[in-house]
């Protein structure tokens, strides 16, 4: 029993960075833009979040900087695709390449500035970010460990996903945003500002992706900068969007599943499987699940119809 609880707990911790990326991309896609720059925005968030945390020693500022960094990356993408109507796929890929290279370049500089050692956040900050049980709730047997003994970023990620779900499905603004994503011309004719709606949600989505990067750089590796911290998580997040049927609450479950695969690969050494195969596992599973999830879909669980196409009112 304890083994299973340990595994699940670790899965939650490993899965949440994916949840940020997935929620961010869902917000973006629901408003009609496919931003393949998730990986890039996570990298930007990871670097700027860590850098701010290192120099200001404040968690709030670190998270704000990570959010702003992801948002800044998304802004590049939004200007390119919404205003200049560039191809969404190409713009997204470019953002990924840019974000990855930028963060790694300055990450190396940061290491050099630190005398060649990996920079580490202050013990105070790592303390705040450590996994710790919530008083009372954390004492419940099993469930306390499973649900109420994580670092605060885990709760932030789940909170954002639930909020995003409520926003999309229960509010006026959410209805308008979904209409823009499905049928921009229809939304436009109904008097909705399509350009503004797209900008807002691309930027918000980018910011949330940035937070996902910050989770990795600030908390996942114990507050120590790693030059490979994001390492493909953004891509898995993009795949998870499809797996979760563009629903942030389902994304929570999806990320847990993937978190599990991440964890399992560290725990199967006793099976004598070469580690390279274990490293491959999450990607193989991603591919498999995508194929299965794409076989048959009801119309409401498909990608928003306007996704991937840029909207121009006077197009004929």
């Amino acid at each position: 029993m304890n083994g299973i609880i340990n595994l699940l707990t670790a899965a939650i911790r490993a899965g949440i960075p994916l949840l940020f990326g997935t929620t961010g991309e869902i917000i973006t896609e629901k408003s009609g833009n496919m931003n393949l720059g998730v990986e890039g925005m996570m990298w930007l968030g990871a670097f700027f979040g860590f850098y701010a945390g290192l120099h200001t020693d404040s968690l709030i500022l670190a998270l704000l900087c990570a959010f702003a960094a992801g948002l800044g990356g998304a802004l590049i993408y939004a200007v390119l695709t919404v205003s200049l109507r560039a191809n969404q796929t190409v713009a997204g890929l470019a953002l990924t390449i840019f974000g990855t290279a930028f963060a790694n370049f300055f990450g190396l500089r940061m290491i050099a500035d630190n005398g060649g050692f990996l920079p580490k956040l202050s013990p105070r900050l790592t303390g705040i970010l450590a996994d710790k049980p919530i008083p009372l709730l954390g004492k419940i047997p099993y469930i306390g460990k499973l649900l109420f003994s994580h670092n605060i970023l885990v709760y932030l990620g789940i909170g954002i996903a639930v909020l995003a779900f409520l926003y999309m499905n229960k509010t006026r603004a959410g209805l308008r945003m979904r209409a823009v994503g499905e049928a921009p011309a229809t939304a436009d004719a109904a008097g909705i500002n399509v350009t503004l709606t797209k900008y807002i949600h691309i930027l918000l989505g980018g910011g949330v992706c940035g937070l996902g990067g910050a989770y990795l750089s600030l908390a996942f590796f114990g507050g120590q900068w790693q030059n490979a911290c994001v390492d493909g998580q953004g891509w898995i997040a993009v795949a998870l969007v499809i797996f979760a049927n563009w629903n942030p609450v389902k994304a929570i479950l999806g990320t847990l599943l993937f978190g599990m695969f991440e964890v399992i690969r560290f725990r199967v050494d006793w099976l004598n499987i070469p580690p390279a195969f274990c490293d491959m596992l999450p990607y193989v599973i991603t591919t498999l699940i995508l194929v299965i999830a794409s076989i048959r879909r009801s119309r409401e669980r498909r990608q928003p119809q306007g996704c991937g196409n840029n909207y121009f009112r006077e197009d004929r």
């Binding site: 209805l175 308008r176 049928a183 229809t186 008097g191 119309r299």
Partner: peptide
């Protein structure tokens, strides 16, 4: 000009909710 996956009511009120 209708959003296929939305209900009739949501289409009717869209933009003037």
């Amino acid at each position: 000009k209708l959003v296929d996956v939305h209900t009739a009511a949501d289409n009717i009120i869209l933009g003037a909710e």
